[in-house]
Design a protein around this nucleic acid. Structure first.
Lengths: 244, 244
DNA sequence: CTATTTTGTTCTTATATATGGACAAATACG
DNA sequence: CGTATTTGTCCATATATAAGAACAAAATAG
């Protein structure tokens, strides 16, 4: 079961991130269609805890710097390695496609950082996006770095429901693709999950944590470039990171 | 009424900010004493929305970089003016006391940024802290920058419940102190709100937004230094900000 | 200055949901 | 390798709470 009020408040945060200026109670109500009293309760809760304030005296609410204080404490403790950020920037330039770093999260791979392609037709994704770990290139590149026991546990829980046309259809097929990818040094996907999306992913371990770096775009544009992209990723990783 | 689930999730965030490493469901339950199923629901909600992930495959949950993405979008839009940050750092050094910038928030003044004194006995405060706008020096320095109409509306709503020994006791007294402070160029408080706390605050408007800069510490240490501190704040503001 | 509309706030109750308990899966122990 | 313990997940229902309605205070229009 999901907690509605938490989703509401995440929605509110994203609302402010887009709007980028204070909003009144009425603005919030208009945007979300929430009952006034409910919106009022949400705003009040945030205000009383110091996470929302009224910058210009009766000119609406806006998230306070307290967020920054808390979040930066959190992300300084377990930061995305700077080397991977460099790799992303470099690959974005070299490939012209959307590139990202993922990490495992249960039966999913989460995107930790994304640099979107500048091209009009591109794979649009944001940090926090999750894709099934077993049928995507990003995911398989993560799985391959785990001890067999962990892989087994995770694959025990996956389903093959939301797969694309070219996705593996059983745990055995997944294990086979992992073996292939491991031997090859990179993983690829062609409409495994999102139709018409093709991508190449390379596993990398930085300070003991498993990541994968992926380059992806519309199939029409990336097909045939798998080896080229894989090599670019590997080279970028080799040159930008020390401990690998 | 306050929304419990939102407070829970703020608590969770602060828990991670202190802990600085992944926590399992069991860790969370132990810390908060929540029922397992409830904690599970909260974690699940955050995970499904991409705000929490499992960095090391079955090694607990941790907030994802998605927080950073959203929060930095928010705080870039309405940042604390860099000039005020400089003022704070300088005053912290010069005075050796705790210093902060506040902004209005309804009947409260919120602390936007704080630099705590390094001394053992000091006023300890964090961004997000709120104090009554009408009985504190920080608050009065904000009020003095508002049009009379706004002041009237705000003072209509205040109460004199949680006042310290030296606090003004009526709206008239507040208005009088504001007049005095405005004439003097700075506001001061001696046990107005927190007993034994003394402080001096100076109003400043940056790009149309009202702020106040405050220096405060234990009464025993700051008493008699009001004018000195006020002058230091004014000088720092004059030298570090252009548009004032 | 008065009437009208908008915005913020309080309260009660029907309704959504937090929770206890029961289960399953994984890990630790003997 | 079998048993005990810990951890994660599901579900029905008693309980907390979200939301409608009604009010008050400001802002805006006339």
């Amino acid at each position: 079961m999901t907690v509605r009020q938490i989703e509401n408040m995440l929605g509110l945060l994203e609302f402010f991130a887009e709007r980028r200026e204070p909003a009144t109670l009425a603005d919030v109500v208009r945007h979300f269609g929430w009952p006034r009293s409910s919106a009022f309760n949400i705003l009040t809760t945030l205000v009383e805890n110091g996470y929302l304030y009224e910058p210009r005296a009766r000119g609406g609410f806006y998230p306070s710097p307290k967020w920054m204080q808390v979040i930066s404490a959190i992300s300084e403790a377990e930061p995305l390695p700077e080397s991977l950020a460099r790799v992303l920037r470099r690959l974005a330039e070299e490939t012209g496609e959307t590139v990202w770093v993922s990490a495992p999260s249960g039966v999913f791979a989460v995107f930790l950082d994304v640099v979107e392609s500048f091209q009009a037709i591109r794979y649009a994704a944001k940090p926090g996006k999750r894709v099934p770990i077993h049928i995507t290139a990003s995911g398989q590149a993560l799985l391959t770095q785990m001890p067999p026991r962990d892989i087994e546990v995770i694959l025990n829980k996956v389903t093959f429901d939301d797969s694309g046309p070219n996705a593996p259809k059983s745990v055995e097929e997944v294990l086979q693709r992992i073996d292939e990818g491991r031997a090859r040094g990179w993983f690829h996907s062609a409409s495994n999950y999102s139709t018409d999306l093709g991508g190449v992913s390379v596993p990398v371990t930085v300070s003991g944590r498993p990541f994968s770096v992926t380059v992806a775009g519309p199939l029409s544009r990336v097909q045939g470039k798998e080896l080229k992209h894989a090599t670019m990723i590997q080279q970028a990783l080799a040159e930008e990171t020390d401990q690998n």
